Simulated assay, not measured.
Amino acid sequence: MACRVQKRVSLRRRLHIQRVLTNFNNNANIKRSPIANITFLHIHKLKLELENLKREYENLIATRRYYINLLNDNVNDNNDVKIEKIKAGTFMVKVTCEKGGDKLVDILEAFEKMCVNVEQARVSCENGFSMEAIIVAEDQNLDVREVNEVLLKAIGKKSGEKGSEKL
């Protein structure tokens, strides 16, 4: 007897929870359609909402990938060398190019061939290769144009060309 009462109480609790979850308060409608059908409809609506959210998430991921590719393309298109003369024989060098290869090694070898000393340098490979350096030439007659040509050859471009080509 006590077991039947407990089952009835637990069934009433579950039905009450289902009514609350489905926002169903009208007792007249409960008699017309069973709570199981209402619960099924509620679950179906939740599944549809979940599918919509998944679709929106996939669209956002695709949009994110598209913009990241655009940013990477813009970074990779900026292959250049900028050189500023600070004082006689001292230059500020800024190099940006695409990732890959031994760019740093090639640039340092080019500095060595020009007989320049690197006083300070900062290198980054986050979105392509970039380097900022202060170099001091042993020969005071070194020109900005000469440094520019040597560095362009070192990173794989001939001076005056837009595309990069390995020498």
Rank of each mutant, 00 (worst) to 15 (best):
Ile86Val: 10
Lys54Asp: 11
Asn26Arg: 04
Thr63Val: 06
Asn25Ser: 14
Glu84Ser: 15
Arg19Pro: 01
Asn78Cys: 07
Asn74Thr: 07
Asn72Ile: 05
Asp77Tyr: 04
Arg13Tyr: 10
Gly89Ile: 00
Arg13Phe: 07
Leu71Asp: 06
Lys87Ile: 09
His44Ser: 10
Ala88Gly: 08
Lys31Tyr: 04
Met92His: 11
Arg64Gly: 06
Ala36Val: 07
Asn52Ala: 08
Ile61Leu: 11
Arg55Ile: 05
Glu51Phe: 04
Asp80Pro: 00
Ala62His: 04
His16Ile: 08
Glu49Val: 00
Leu53Gly: 02
Asn26Ala: 08
Glu56Trp: 05
Phe24Tyr: 12
Arg65Asp: 15
Leu41Asn: 13
Gln18Leu: 14
Ser33Arg: 15
Glu51Tyr: 04
Lys82Tyr: 04
His42Glu: 02
Tyr57Asp: 06
Leu50Ala: 10
Asn59Asp: 09
Leu15Cys: 09
Asn27Arg: 14
Val93Leu: 02
Tyr67Asp: 02
Gly89Arg: 01
Asn74Tyr: 10
Leu41Ser: 05
Glu84Ile: 12
Asn74Ile: 08
Asn27Tyr: 13
Arg65Asn: 15
Ile38Arg: 13
Thr39Ala: 15
Asn25Pro: 07
Asn76Thr: 02
Tyr67Ala: 03
Glu49Asn: 08
Lys54Trp: 05
Thr63Arg: 09
Arg65Val: 08
Asn76Ile: 00
Asn72Gln: 09
Asn25Tyr: 14
Phe40His: 11
